[in-house]
């Protein structure tokens, strides 16, 4: 059952990703991306990361996609632009990126218990399961976030402040008093 669902979500996610890069209209690409992100949320649920799945739908499929939509509308992408890179360079670049990603994945999956992506997999999974039972699905994320990673958390707040300031500077009405 879980495998069937995983394959279903994985196929939709991959198909959506292909749709994003092959779609003619930017808005169509955006909708394909929503499908991909929603499928990823489904995969998170299969991993029993329910909080992450909810966040994925709320933030990525919701808020971030709205932002992308506005950017597409603002940029006026109705007409064709000349590509920055020649066709051949794009192909070469894509092959390099895909090859490197595949190499990392193969290295990780083929690696031994010590070096691969699954290093200590069983113990780590058991530890996470025990923590979920003890603290709840949200507590597993909350406790490290507000203790071990609290500096990163505060920096993230500053990053959001920077985003607000940048948006105000970019989008502020020009005709207000003060002249800037």
């Amino acid at each position: 059952m879980t495998d069937v669902l995983f394959i279903l979500f994985a196929v939709v996610a991959t198909g959506g990703a292909i749709g994003v890069v092959t779609g003619r209209s930017p808005v169509a690409s955006l909708l394909f991306m929503v499908a991909t992100l929603a499928s990823l949320a489904g995969i998170y649920v299969l991993f029993e990361a329910h909080f992450l799945a909810a966040i994925q739908v709320l933030v990525y499929a919701g808020a971030i996609m709205v932002l992308f939509l506005f950017v597409i509308m603002l940029l006026n992408l109705g007409h064709d632009y000349r590509a920055d890179l020649k066709y051949g360079s794009w192909t070469l670049l894509s092959l390099v990126v895909v090859g490197l990603t595949a190499g990392v994945l193969v290295h990780g999956l083929m690696g031994t218990e010590e070096t691969g992506l699954r290093a200590g997999g069983a113990e780590v999974a058991a530890a996470i399961d025990a923590a979920v039972v003890e603290k709840g699905a949200v507590g597993v994320i909350a406790d490290p976030l507000f203790t071990d990673w609290v500096v990163a958390f505060e920096l993230m707040g500053l990053l959001l402040l920077v985003a607000i300031v940048a948006a105000v500077v970019l989008a502020k009405p020009r005709d207000r008093e003060g002249g800037n």
Binding site: V66, V138, L160, V168
Partner: peptide, 21 residues
């Protein structure tokens, strides 16, 4: 519209970080 979207995302994220706490 972009201003509205940025404000929405920033305070949406704020809420999401407040919930686990």
């Amino acid at each position: 519209f972009y201003m509205v979207a940025i404000s929405f995302i920033v305070f949406d994220l704020e809420t999401i970080f407040l919930v686990p706490w």
